[in-house]
């Protein structure tokens, strides 16, 4: 299983990747998780790779090979779309954050990205995970709400994800994160 987590530096993709890595390890799979630190964290485009299975060699995912793209931001879902395999799933927050070239007016933020991705025949699950996280009690849990939105697509049982969240999140934030996860999952069911 090849999962890419994409977003904007500072959105919490590291924690999301650790939760999924933990769930895969607990399920007895071979796992590799690749992160990028440094320059890209300053509001730049960030990508994290989570791969698990009977064996995993490379830590990176090639274009056309991701089973799932988990995206914290619409434009990033569009940017990394070429990495999705045919028949794969995009799970994205509907949040949009203008990159600097859009802010300065040098570029335009494309419209209707979710619809355009769907028009390619790609299965896409989209919801406002920021609003879901706010409802759960903290916008910072938007990353975990996104995992809830993805649900079974990630290849883990509900219990396995809950256990991984509990193992990876500091105790005082466990409750809000588990709630964000549940609300995310409810949202997916309602779509």
């Amino acid at each position: 299983m090849n999962i890419m987590i994409v977003g904007v530096g500072g959105q919490g993709s590291l924690l999301a990747s650790r939760i999924l890595g933990r769930a895969a390890l607990d399920a007895g799979y071979a796992v590799k998780v690749s992160e990028v630190h440094g320059m890209s964290q300053r509001g730049g485009s960030v990508v994290t790779y989570v791969k698990y299975g009977e064996t995993v060699d490379a830590p990176l995912i090639c274009r056309g090979e991701a089973d799932v793209i988990l995206s914290f931001e619409q434009l990033e879902a569009a940017r990394w779309l070429p990495y999705l395999r045919r028949g794969g799933t995009v799970v994205t927050s509907t949040q949009s954050i203008n990159p600097m070239p859009v802010v300065t007016g040098a570029s335009v933020y494309p419209d209707a990205l979710v619809e355009k991705i769907a028009a390619k025949g790609v299965r896409i699950i989209a919801a406002d995970t920021l609003a879901i996280a706010r409802e759960a009690g903290s916008e910072k849990a938007a990353n975990v709400a996104l995992i809830g939105l993805a649900g079974q697509v990630l290849g883990f049982s509900d219990e396995a994800i809950r256990a991984a969240i509990t193992a990876c999140v500091p105790p005082k934030f466990t409750e809000v994160n588990l709630k964000a996860y549940s609300l995310g999952a409810e949202n997916a069911a309602a779509l």
Partner: peptide, 27 residues
């Protein structure tokens, strides 16, 4: 490696829209 040594070309979808770059910025 797959492309250069095995001649494999990946298959994937891409949107027609130009995707603006997202360079890192001062916080």
């Amino acid at each position: 490696l797959a492309e250069k040594l095995l001649g494999k070309v990946p298959e994937f979808d891409v949107l027609e829209d130009a995707i603006p770059p997202r360079p890192p910025v001062l916080c």
